[in-house]
Design a binder for these strands. Structure first.
Lengths: 297, 297
DNA sequence: TCCTAATCATCTATTTTTGTATATCAGATA
DNA sequence: TATCTGATATACAAAAATAGATGATTAGGA
C-alpha cells in the first residue's frame, strides 16, 4: 500500500539505476553520490512497499517488479525532456531545441544539408537528431518532429505527405565488371544480393511488388539500410537503395530501371501541440521543403 | 539557457501552483509550506531562465510561458500516477488500483453493478472511475481502461467491440398526459424537446440519421447526457436516451419505436502494455462481459 | 595465492532544504 | 474608516538530505 506519494526525483534515480546497473554508476551519471542514490532507492522501495533491486557486489539486479515499472519511468523521462525542450524554446522567435526522429538513411544521407541550411538561418536553434525506425516515438514525445515512411493514423498529429522516394536495384560498377550484368530479373538468382535481416513492413512491401525477391538468397544481410547502402557502395553485390542516393556516386549503376522501381512514401509528422511554437513550425516547414526539393519537386 | 536539469519535484510543484492559483493553496495541496513552494518556483524559474508567474497579492498569475508548459506538466503528472498504479498492482494476483474512464451515463447508470460485482470477487482491487467523454485520455495514461463510443484507431490499444447500445426517443408518461402523444415525427416540432448544448460527433451522428432533428428547437439543452436523462425522467419533454435505461422506469414511454432507433457503438479499450497485469485483465474481461449482458447478449 | 578494482553498506560532518514566525500588501466588509 | 481575510516576501532556527570517508564483500587476473 502506498501511503505518501514519493518524490518524483526518485523516479529519475530509479530509471538511472536501471539503465546503469549500479548505484555507483547511477551516482556518476546524475552527479550525486552512491549513498544518496542508495537512499533514494531505499525510500522508493519503502514507499511502494516492495523490493525493486537485489543488491550484489556486482551491482543492482532489477526484480521483475522493477522491470514492469521501467516503461513508465522511461516515459516520465521522455516527458520531462519534452518539457525542457518546450521551455528552451520560450521567448518568441526561433530558438531552443527541436528533436527530429528519422530513419538512419534519411538522417545521415538526406537531412544533414537541409538541417545545416536551417541552422544557418536560425543560429539560436539547436537541432537534435534521433535515428530510429520506431514509429511510436512521437507519441511518447521522444521527438518533436518525425520523418516517417508510413502514414501515421493518429489524430493528434499533423502530417504532411512528401511523396514517393523512388527505390531501385543498384550495384557498383566494380562488382558488375567482375560478375557481369544481369539481363533478366531471373538472373538475379545467380548474383550476390544484399537483403534484410528481419521481416518488416518495408520488406513485405517489396516482396509484394517483386515476388521474385522471395526466392533470392542474399549473401549479405543487414537490418540497417545504412549498412546495405554501404555494402552496395563497397561493391559487395546488388541491393535496393534510393535512386537519388545511388546517383551521387557515378560508379553505381542502376539495374532493371523499368522492371523494378518502388516508391517509398514519405511523411513529415509533428505533434499538433507544437504547431504554434516557432522552432517546430520552422523546422517542420524546412523539412517539408527540403524533402520536396530532394524529390525534385 | 538551461544549465542543470531541475528537480522533477519542481515540475509537480509548478503544476500544482498552476492548478491552485496561489503558492499558499499549492502548499496546502502538497502538504508543504508556502515559503517552500515559493522557493521551488523561484528555483525553476532560475533554472529555465524565464519567469513563470507574476506575483500578486491575490495569487500567482501564470505567464504565457507557463501556460505553454502546462500540458507537459500535466502529462508528467499522469505518467507518475500511472507508475504508481502499476506499482500498486505488483505482487501477483488481482490487487492494486485500476482506473476506468467512461461516459457519464455509462459510468453512473450502467457500470456500478458490474464494478460492484467485480469488487466483491476481488477484495484487494481498488477501482477508480473517471467520468469524461474525452477520447484521448487513454493515450495520456489518465486511465487504464476506457469504455468508448467511438472505435479508437490507435495501434497500441486492445479494443473489444461490444455492440450497439440502442437509443430511442423517450418521454415521461406525465408529460405525455399533459401534452399529448405525437403521432408523426413532424409533430415533434410542436413538443418540448431535450437537446444538446454543443456540437459533437455524437450529435452529428443523430442528425445524419434523422434530419428532422435539425429543425427542432429544444426547450432544454445540456451537454451532459446525464442531465438529459434526468430531464426526461422529470417529465420535462421528449429526448433521446438509452432504451435499456428508459425501460427501468415504467412511467417512461418510448416513442416512434420503429421510426427512430440508433445504435450506439460501444468498445472497451485498454493499453496493450497492461494486458498482462492481472488487475487490468480481470477488469477488462468483467467490463466486456458486463456490458454484453447489459446489451442482452 | 594474493592483489586489484569494482561493488554496496555504514557512520559522521556538512550543506541544503524546509518550517516557523513575522512583516507587508490588496481587497472585501461592516 | 477600521478590520478581517486572503495573498507573497523575508529572517532565522530546525530538520533533512547530502557528501565524504571507511569498511566489507566479491570477481577477476597475475
Amino acid at each position: 500500500m502506498i501511503r505518501i506519494e514519493p518524490s518524483w526525483d526518485f523516479y529519475r534515480t530509479f530509471l538511472t539505476v536501471l539503465q546503469q546497473g549500479s548505484l555507483s554508476a547511477a551516482a556518476r551519471e546524475l552527479g550525486l553520490t552512491q549513498p544518496t542514490i542508495g537512499r533514494h532507492i531505499d525510500a522508493l522501495e519503502t514507499s511502494i512497499g516492495f523490493q525493486l533491486f537485489i543488491r550484489s557486489p556486482q551491482g543492482l539486479i532489477p526484480t521483475e517488479a522493477a522491470t514492469d515499472l521501467r516503461p513508465h519511468a522511461e516515459q516520465l523521462a521522455s516527458n520531462a525532456a519534452a518539457l525542457l525542450r518546450a521551455a528552451s524554446g520560450q521567448g518568441g522567435g526561433v530558438r531552443g531545441t527541436v528533436r527530429i526522429s528519422a530513419s538512419e538513411v534519411i538522417g545521415i544521407e538526406v537531412l544533414p544539408p537541409i538541417l545545416s541550411a536551417l541552422s544557418d538561418q536560425h543560429p539560436d536553434l539547436i537541432i537534435e537528431l534521433s535515428l530510429s525506425d520506431a514509429v511510436e516515438n512521437l507519441l511518447h514525445q521522444e521527438a518533436d518532429i518525425a520523418v516517417r515512411m508510413v502514414e501515421p493514423e493518429q489524430d493528434a498529429l499533423i502530417t504532411r505527405r512528401i511523396g514517393g522516394i523512388p527505390l531501385g536495384l543498384h550495384a557498383h560498377r566494380r562488382y558488375l565488371d567482375k560478375h557481369g550484368i544481369p539481363e533478366k530479373l531471373e538472373d538475379l538468382l545467380d548474383h550476390r544480393t544484399i537483403g534484410f535481416d528481419r521481416e518488416s513492413a518495408f520488406v513485405r512491401a517489396i516482396r509484394k511488388r517483386v515476388p521474385l525477391i522471395e526466392l533470392m538468397r542474399p549473401s549479405f544481410r543487414a537490418d540497417s539500410n545504412l549498412a546495405q547502402l554501404a555494402a552496395i557502395r563497397a561493391g559487395f553485390g546488388i541491393g535496393v537503395c534510393q535512386v537519388a542516393l545511388a546517383k551521387r556516386d557515378p560508379e553505381i549503376v542502376r539495374l532493371f530501371k523499368t522492371e523494378f522501381t518502388l516508391p517509398l512514401e514519405t511523411f513529415v509528422v509533428m505533434h499538433e501541440n507544437l504547431k504554434t511554437t516557432p522552432r517546430c513550425r520552422v523546422t517542420f516547414d524546412a523539412l517539408v521543403e527540403g524533402l520536396l526539393a530532394y524529390l525534385g519537386k
